[in-house]
Nucleic acid binder design. Sequence first.
DNA 1: ATATAAAATTCCATATAATGGAATAAAATA
DNA 2: TATTTTATTCCATTATATGGAATTTTATAT
Lengths: 265, 265
Amino acid sequence: MTKGKIQKSSNKTSPRQGGAQSIRRSIAILRSVSKHNETGARLHQIAKAVDLPTPTVHRILTVLLEEKFLSFDIEGKTYRLGSELYSLGAATQRISIRDRYHTSLQRISGQTGDGTCLVIPSGYDGLCIDHIPGKYRIQVLGFDINERRPLGIGAACLALLSFLPEKQREDIIAANAPRYMTYYGIEDKEVRSWIKRTRKLKYSNSIHIVSSESIGVGAPILNKKGQVVAAISMAGINSRMTSEKRRETARIILAEIAAVDPPPD
Amino acid sequence: MTKGKIQKSSNKTSPRQGGAQSIRRSIAILRSVSKHNETGARLHQIAKAVDLPTPTVHRILTVLLEEKFLSFDIEGKTYRLGSELYSLGAATQRISIRDRYHTSLQRISGQTGDGTCLVIPSGYDGLCIDHIPGKYRIQVLGFDINERRPLGIGAACLALLSFLPEKQREDIIAANAPRYMTYYGIEDKEVRSWIKRTRKLKYSNSIHIVSSESIGVGAPILNKKGQVVAAISMAGINSRMTSEKRRETARIILAEIAAVDPPPD
DNA sequence: ATATAAAATTCCATATAATGGAATAAAATA
DNA sequence: TATTTTATTCCATTATATGGAATTTTATAT
């Protein structure tokens, strides 16, 4: 008996994946690997990060490896992002974000004298994809090409986070809260108040957050649909970055962004 | 009751996917989309290309869209590669192939006076990821950034193909044979003979293949493990490209490649 | 406008692909 | 050499992905 004629339309805990569990998992794994791409990620590490049993992760890693979405270092037994991702990444946009704004960065750097960088969202992080050093003798360094920083921290990452849709923003803040605290001693409450300010001004200020001696200014790049796809920021040492200079810098960055035909998506 | 105690260890036709069918399918779909990224690919088109039923493809596309591995143009109902692929692609190598060889390309172009390009393998194609125009008044154009060409056709794509492992090479030739014939009127036999020559010389010559007025020279870039990861080529008009000039160009390209610390993978 | 065809999307019963616990093997460490 | 940790293989079980059929939307012909 108990034939169970009534179909359980929703089962206890499974969150309804829509017939794509393994794909979602693969993507989570790729994102996890990308966070440790410099050192390379180990099976165990990845499994813990994505919260899945080791054999499952192992199987998925094997496929991604075969398809060159990952590469494997046999000595260290570590996984990194693979060449096929590079190929596909290179083919994404007819003109990539980087190409599109490279000369803008150069001009901003030329006008302000300080270092400028171009940052895109990548998971819960901002990823720096281009950087022009400033010409002053004393420079703020730190956010160089291929580096990552939690969304919300620093002028560019704050600009990115601020203009994401609210739901996504909250997800990211929740996920990053521990990092805010551990690495920067900042409560998520504070990040939310910065966001509010940033949205009002249309550009971000990052004051003594990443480093106590530097101040940054950043602005978002929106695509044709109005979604944030990147951000440009400039950072200088305190003494140079008066509030007047900050406003002026923001003006320059915003003007440069406005001058470029926005990316389609 | 015919409980079927004997397990069918191998079933009739299924080609043993190792628990990753949907992942493989997703990747095939991404590759297919990348081939039509400029115009965008439609559901039907993709389904035909990867030889799967439309609903299945539709479901996978939906996930890839949600995960930003694809973007969707609502007017044209077309799919393109998405921002997350760009992010992951940008994070692949500490220094990307493009950054690593950009100045080499500039130097080669400076020394030879002709246009140079950097090409990576992408599926059955070579994908141009960087290009420096030459300085002569008359230039060979054609292979520009983001363009694709079948592996085997043109100096760079021939260099790439020639130094792949034999099995992979044969797979690619088999897959590309129809395109060789249709678009260039070339038999796969010919391609194989070029490969032989290229492997012997350590660089490729592409004579009157892509265009009857131009000649190209290319050389492979091998990573630390000795695998081809990219190729550099230079193309000039016939009158300039004497056999002497070709040898000299090859020398320059090979020297430039040798001067750069090879990519790890 | 209206009919017709083609492509996109939703639905859902079913089978099979993906799962992950357990066992085993291989490294790392004591 | 023993012990722990991490990686890999195995395979019975079931939840997941599948794809045929139905429906809706969009394009094209009349």
